[in-house]
């Protein structure tokens, strides 16, 4: 500190004689710079971590996407943008991207709707509330992979419990038939995987919304009651708007999570048959077994898509985030 000031003032003296007008501005700028840099030592470890854990992998990913790397991991040299053009020429890409959109929208929308109801319920006082609140954590605490495997077996066309139940109810007429093969049919498989994704996303979302609900002051509700607002009106005019900051955060985290979701689809169908149940994240992995460079190119595209989604969403919800 001492040293810097000394040189600064020395420099100031020299320049002062030449340009009297500029002289008073310079030390101000220098001081401002020093002040701006002052927190750096405190921030450095965190910045270094971000650099290594976030920025460096992103750079590596981008580098990979421009290399010709075969399935054995041998780098055959620079490949320009050919990996990207190969990915864009891929006949599966359009359907994979469209499916990703549907998957993200369906899972996030259903999750938020169900969680809103759950949060409302759990915010009430009723006997056994503690137990029920704990129970909701179970799907969250269990490994997503494990949940997916359990669901896959429950849907087994020959003897899965869901099929046995549906058979006893008379809905599934025959085991091993087309109807019983839920995960074999791409459309049915998507429905079931959305169910599983919602199942594992609801606990977190519910707790995020529950935290939002409990932060709404009781006086507001009292005021509403005094003004004679009905239950529905109270919800729409008070609860819902005041819940928006919590909901924005919950939706944002879910958007990124669901877009990047891998284990559910990979465990239940492997993205098959012929990538007909792949989202872009799963498809990226399928590409990896054949060509790492192309897989890297798709990663870059996915990365871009996530950033765009997040930016659009943040922009649309600028106000609700400010309020929090």
């Amino acid at each position: 500190m001492q040293e810097t000031v000394d040189t600064e003032s020395g420099a100031q003296q020299v320049t002062a004689g030449r340009a009297a007008v500029r002289a008073p501005r310079r030390p101000g700028r220098a001081r401002r710079l020093t002040r701006a840099l002052a927190p750096l030592p405190w921030l450095a470890p965190a910045l270094a971590l971000i650099g290594f854990a976030v920025l460096w992998p992103v750079w590596e990913m981008f580098q990979t996407s421009r290399q010709h790397i075969n399935s054995f991991g041998f780098d055959l040299g620079d490949y320009g943008w050919k990996n990207f053009s190969a990915v864009f020429d891929d006949p599966n890409l359009a359907s994979v991207m469209a499916r990703t959109g549907v998957w993200v929208f369906a899972v996030v929308a259903l999750t938020v709707l169900i969680s809103l109801a759950f949060a409302q319920l759990f915010n009430q006082r009723f006997p056994g509330r503690k137990v029920v609140r704990w129970a909701l954590i179970a799907p969250w605490a269990a490994s997503v992979m494990m949940t997916s495997i359990v669901f896959r077996w429950m849907l087994d066309p020959n003897n899965g419990v869901i099929n046995v139940l549906l058979h006893q109810l008379g809905i599934v007429s025959q085991f091993n038939g087309t109807q019983a093969s839920w995960l074999g049919n791409p459309t049915h498989a998507m429905y079931w995987m959305i169910v599983v994704a919602v199942f594992v996303s609801v606990p977190f979302t519910t707790y995020a919304l529950l935290a939002g609900l409990s932060s709404i002051p009781a006086e507001v509700y009292e005021a509403a009651r005094v003004d004679g607002a009905g239950r529905l009106r109270t919800y729409w005019a008070i609860t819902f708007p005041l819940l928006r900051p919590a909901m924005t955060v919950a939706i944002l985290i879910n958007l990124m999570n669901v877009f990047n979701s891998f284990p559910i689809i990979y465990t239940m169908t492997g993205g098959g048959p012929d990538s007909q149940t792949s989202t872009s994240t799963v498809y990226m992995y399928t590409l990896k077994t054949l060509n790492i460079g192309q897989s890297g190119a798709l990663s870059v595209i996915n990365f871009g898509v996530v950033i765009v989604i997040v930016l659009i969403f943040l922009r649309a919800n600028k106000n609700s985030l400010k309020e929090s």
Binding site: P157, N176, T178, S181, L183, G184, N185, G272, P273
Partner: peptide, 11 residues
């Protein structure tokens, strides 16, 4: 014709 298992591509 249903002479095989359903959805052979996933079995």
């Amino acid at each position: 014709a249903g002479d095989t298992e359903a959805n052979p591509g996933t079995v």
